[in-house]
Amino acid sequence: MNAQRRDVLKSGGGVTMLALLAAAGWLKPGQALAADGWNAAAFATKSLDDTVRALGGSAPAPSTDISFVQTPDIAENGAVVPVGVTSAIPKTESIAILVEKNPNMLVGVFDIPPGTAPSITTRMKMGQSSKVYALVKADGKYYVASKEVKVTLGGCGG
């Protein structure tokens, strides 16, 4: 069963490369976050830096103004892990949630227009215990915070 899992990861890797190459060719950064588009390149990345680049930014700065709310230290069921991110950084434009050890890191990107509180809550899947990143774009710059979440039952691959 474990060997199968490796195969899936490997084949997934090939697709990622294609997606990245394609993205380099015809997706300008910034354009990628258009209101009705879906940033396929960002959702195929496997590292924090790659994801930030696919979203159109560069190296994110660690920040203590980003906090996790309603996010457990230990999640019993990896298929449903509550996660909430609140940003205290002024001019927060978007919040992204990433799970380090998921097959593809990016869970979702939430664009926060002015007037909306820079705080969102949702539920996500986690394949195994991992670091969870909250990536905040504020005033054109990227900030990041992380939290370790332990999973007792994985949510990917069943």
Binding site: N104, F110, P113, I120, T122, R123
Partner: peptide
């Protein structure tokens, strides 16, 4: 008629997704 939130989701969002947010007004 005013957009108060947009989001892009990958497959790692849970089945039967839950979302909560707040806006002024």
């Amino acid at each position: 008629g005013k957009t108060v939130l947009t989001a892009q989701w990958g497959p790692a969002v849970s089945k039967n997704p839950f979302l909560s947010f707040k806006f002024k007004g």
